[in-house]
Write a protein that binds this DNA or RNA. Structure first.
Lengths: 227, 227
DNA sequence: TCAAAAGTGTTCTGCTTACACCCATGA
DNA sequence: TCATGGGTGTAAGCAGAACACTTTTGA
């Protein structure tokens, strides 16, 4: 068998949550070159072991490890899903690097507890709408945009949205998620009817209690993962 | 910067076409261990250059190169799209290998011209419905299934289906593509109405001539890629 | 008592589904 | 002339868009 030059392989995370109605991404400020001082997606290199006896960790495991390191959150609380791999030559000036990209959807109640400054690096939530071109390191702007595009595709046809609301949530809270992901307001009446159908279909169920809001309290619902 | 052990990176292709109404995948018989004699998806290692000055080829370029080597077809005639990356430790017993997977959709008229036996290896089209568990090497069964699932998701919301019919095609031919991808027959009347809407929306247009069939000749249409 | 936001109702429109049926052609 | 399969018609029902309206609360 021929020997081949090998690329370095990283796993990068697009960690998203909803803060004050704005879809926000977790970014770290780079403390070293290249792109020193710029914001970047959290990530790290895949552990490969010696490659023969020990072939190292799975891609999903690497993503889960990075997520834990960066946020303290485990996969049981977060939707973590691979969406694409980026490998353009030159995307990292130091060497050939492939990034296997994952998005992680964090419930807003957990997002608030994320320790700001996990790995000694400066960590912050930034609303994606506020990001200007050129502020992200590497090709991370591309990676983020692909993640957002994929979410827009899937939000209507998967249970993705329920990963961005607390375990029990109100219809307006869920509506805020759809509005943020799709980038356009959702009609309250029509949205309510859609949710009603989800309840009839057994996807959602009513949860006890109500949520106190600035005005009229809203009923609570929860996602029925089982049965 | 720390030095990391690196995985080998391959690009594997799920090359699909429609032969006699059956969705079929191009497979090669392996001539060497591991999995000698088993069928496998065509693929090859990513060219990385020296990794510093020359960082090698893009992922898409590697996929296009493999496609050309295996089928003689170029990207201008084929829809080639990355869909996932597979990296489970142990998926290749020799060493840690990541496979960046692409699907390639080939028009049936071109598929018939694919030289059977490209790289001296035995190459053949196999209907995916006829594949039994355990006949594919590595985790290629998984890769194929993920490709098919992705196609089923996208066939209704993208122009993917037009990559599987000849440049000018009849409505029944297009219907056969949808039936094969979705795995269930499509109602002729309803399907025709859907196509009619696509024509009204300017996605398709009538093409000159008719296709002679076993019975009544069918009108021809083509995809309007531009304007 | 007023504004804000939860929650309800209504109408129109268009797509989907299911299925019956007509028609042109090759054998 | 008959079977095949291309092509047309129709009616029921559901889903989405738009929007007016009522209700309940905090300030």
């Amino acid at each position: 068998m021929v020997s081949h030059a090998r690329p370095a392989v990283a796993v990068d995370l697009v960690i998203l949550t909803l803060l004050d109605g704005a879809l926000s991404v977790l970014l770290v400020r780079r403390g070293e070159p290249p792109f020193e001082g710029k914001l970047a997606l959290p990530g790290g290199f895949l552990r490969v072991g010696d490659g023969v006896e020990d072939q190292g960790e799975d891609l999903d495991a690497a993503a889960a490890r990075e997520l834990e390191e960066e946020t303290g959150l485990g996969v049981e609380d977060v939707l973590l899903e691979q969406f694409s791999t980026f490998g353009r030559p030159g995307r990292d000036p130091r060497m050939r690097v492939l990034s296997v990209a994952y998005y992680a959807l964090v419930r807003s109640d957990l997002a608030k507890r994320v320790r700001a400054g996990g790995d000694a690096a400066e960590t912050c939530w930034i609303p994606v709408a506020e990001l200007r071109e050129g502020v992200l390191a590497f090709d991370h702007e591309d990676i983020l945009q692909v993640a957002l595009a994929r979410m827009r595709e899937k939000v209507d046809t998967s249970s993705l949205a329920f990963s961005l609301v607390p375990e029990t949530f109100t219809i307006p809270e869920l509506r805020a998620v759809y509005s943020a992901v799709k980038g356009e307001p959702q009609d309250p009446g029509n949205f309510r009817r859609r949710v009603t159908r989800l309840i009839e279909d057994g996807v959602l169920e009513k949860a006890p209690g109500v949520r106190r809001t600035a005005s009229k309290p809203a009923a609570l619902y929860r996602f029925r993962s089982s049965g």
